[in-house]
Design a binder for these strands. Structure first.
Lengths: 340, 340
DNA sequence: CTGAAAGCGCTAACAT
DNA sequence: ATGTTAGCGCTTTCAG
């Protein structure tokens, strides 16, 4: 049937132990035998059964990837890219990643993803904001965890975080460099640390350039951060701020919604109002004009998260990584230096 | 450490064989012992190791879920929903779903997803159009396959297909019922059977109501079917058809692009032109006006695909399922009956 | 109706 | 340097 280590051993005229050793680059094996064995492995196209291996090694070589339903089904493929990165890196370590969404509300530890209930994973990557209850439950299970783009308010964990403060600064400084002084900020769900940090970056940049911060130019009452709330927030912001020349949206989805509102009121982007977003998920969305944004290296974040997990699995020590972001300048921001 | 069948046997004062039998509802066990065993199972919170089980049963209880990179990263979460459905149903069968994307170009059987190379799945679900080469390679591996929203030009497979012809008819008939007679069609990538079928539904509906089909009212030269190509196709279509009152786009992404173009030319939707899409992926996109569309039950398709795979695993006979679609009437189509 | 025991494919300690 | 063997946790004949 399926070809096993026995078949290889037989054909190579060695014991199965030797085959196993050869396969694992063990030093205690002579180069000659190793070569001989590997040749047969190739010929027979043998691949060790990960099930048998898992049984004896007492490990699954699986990683769980957890995110909320909402985040997974999100229109902007943000976490999808992160997942892809993790899958990519997992391959190099011969791990599989099991994707599992969880409801946005969560209370019972009984409803933990079955891969942790069944101990079918060696560790878990948690992407994006999740209910804190689940973190507690996971903690009780003593299952290794690394967070991506989210960090629980308390506790010590491995995590891959975006440098949101830096990003907020870069976005705002870009507007300032282009001569803007009346810069609005729209964001929602300020409980979310990422959004809060981006907002903080906005404030830091203003301060750095001695531009007075004005709470009137800030709309952070939306409960979500999607296109619709961007549209709505822009409406509120622009109705009470007639002098705004630029707008920093806490993410691209909101920026897109804001752009829609602005255009519908007959104004032009960037001539009348400049807009900058965050996340850079709009490449394929062909917004008009193309949206300037802060690029977050999503695939790299996924890769890094797996690395951190591997690292934790061997060292048992949590580690944090801050991922730098990059300004992507397109055509939604106008240089108004010397214009006024 | 982790609690095994032995612990249960010991505590229940039976043999491990008995525990196993009890766990699997075997008839040859007395109700009394079974109850006793199950009680201990509950107390100890015992869960059989799927690895050990997999080893003896020679099956992984994993399903591979394959789609192209493009489809996975697609802005509209179409396949994402299908995946979610499959995950959902897989749970009921105690299977895991391993998601794997493949490049849009594919040539070497050596580059098959590693879960098939390693035989880490009992079967594979293929979602959306994939390179035919991969189908051939999979075939050579004799691994059970079910297709979702795609069917290879030749061969006999299990498949979950959308009734695209019916959908195209429903969309077109809706426009006709609302008094439209000059109805345009925009689509791209006519090599794709789904798009072709939708187009065919459009033609059937026209014919049914004795409305002459006019190739001039059809734009199918786009190579992709996204927002951008919708914008472009609408431009071509509307420039050479001044009398169009309605437009059927082969999917929502194109419909959205078309709407953008229409609005930019100063026309109103649906007053000047009615638009209907296909797929109904725009719920959370809050298009303005809300787009009428043909709803495809994506989650159900995922569920059905797993069922078909389970069915095939036991019966070894392929089966095809046609999923009916539903008209979702919103506000992008105007009733012009009696208006002209 | 229940228990003993073999064996799934592999690793690693222990022999040789 | 290589082989022998026990055992990972489970299912399943086969005996009793």
């Amino acid at each position: 049937m399926t070809i096993t280590i026995k078949d290889v051993a037989q054909k190579a005229n060695v014991s199965i132990a030797t085959v196993s050793l050869a396969l694992h680059d063990n030093v205690r094996i002579s180069p000659g035998t190793k070569k001989k064995v590997m040749k047969v492995v190739d010929e027979l196209n043998y691949r060790p059964s990960r099930i048998a291996r898992g049984l004896v090694l007492q490990q699954t070589q699986n990683i769980g990837f957890l995110l909320t339903n909402d985040h997974f089904l999100h229109t902007e493929p943000f976490y999808t890219h992160i997942f892809l990165g993790s899958e990519f890196e997992a391959r190099d370590h011969n791990f599989y990643v099991l994707l599992n969404t969880i409801p946005n509300k969560f209370n019972e530890c009984d409803h933990l993803p079955r891969f942790v209930l069944e101990k079918n994973v060696d560790g878990v990557i948690i992407a994006g904001k999740v209910p804190l209850e689940i973190v507690t439950c996971l903690e009780a299970d003593k299952i290794p965890v690394v967070f991506v783009d989210f960090y629980p308010p308390s506790g010590e964990y491995s995590a891959v975080l975006i440098d949101n403060v830096q990003g907020g600064e870069k976005a705002t400084e870009h507007l300032i460099a282009y001569g803007h002084r009346n810069i609005g900020f729209i964001g929602g769900d300020m409980v979310h640390p990422s959004i809060r940090d981006r907002f903080q970056g906005y404030q830091i940049a203003l301060e750095k350039f001695k531009i007075p911060f004005n709470m009137k130019q800030v709309v952070t009452r939306e409960s979500t951060t999607n296109r619709k709330s961007g549209y709505h927030a822009a409406e509120i912001l622009l109705k009470k701020n007639k002098d705004l020349t630029a707008l920093f949206a806490c993410n691209d989805a909101m920026a897109l919604g804001a752009m829609q509102y602005i255009k519908e009121t007959g104004k032009k982007i960037p001539e009348d109002i400049s807009v900058i977003g965050f996340d850079d998920v709009v490449e394929d969305l062909s917004s008009d004009p193309p949206l300037s944004s802060i690029r977050v290296p999503k695939v790299e974040m996924g890769i890094e998260s797996v690395r951190l997990l591997m690292d934790y699995l061997s060292s048992k020590r949590p580690k944090k990584v801050l991922i730098p972001v990059e300004l992507i300048s397109r055509n939604s921001v106008l240089n108004i230096n010397g214009k006024y």
